[in-house]
């Protein structure tokens, strides 16, 4: 009976936030951070690969590479965001 009442409540929008969806979104977000913070070399490897890709096009200095994964809010939802701050020293040739 309680289930039917809950169902009705849901269909009439009184309780339309499905906790299942909330759980999934929260998990996906927290696991992105867990996986990065518990992996020994994830960020280091990621940095190295990004650096190599960037070096194809521009000159940069080794010490200036700042690559992070941050939480940020976009349109009311919390998302994970890759933030890279890499000052360019020079463009390689005329592409």
């Amino acid at each position: 009976m309680l289930q039917i009442i809950n169902k009705l409540k849901k269909s009439f929008g009184q309780d339309n936030i499905e906790s299942r969806q909330v759980a999934k979104e929260r998990l996906q977000l927290v696991l992105t951070h867990d996986r990065i913070s518990t992996s020994n070399n994830f960020i280091e490897k990621f940095k190295a690969d990004i650096k190599n890709a960037v070096l194809e096009y521009v000159e940069i200095s080794d010490n200036d590479i700042d690559v992070r994964i941050e939480k940020s809010e976009e349109n009311g939802a919390i998302i994970s965001k890759l933030v890279a701050n890499i000052p360019i020293k020079n463009i390689k040739g005329r592409i």
Binding site: Q3, K7, K10, R20, Q28, L31
Partner: peptide, 17 residues
């Protein structure tokens, strides 16, 4: 019951993760 009510992660949800 909870999964059908969308109040529990489904098997698919869990294994998506």
């Amino acid at each position: 019951k909870l999964v059908n009510n969308r109040d529990m992660l489904s098997a698919e949800d869990v294994n998506d993760i």
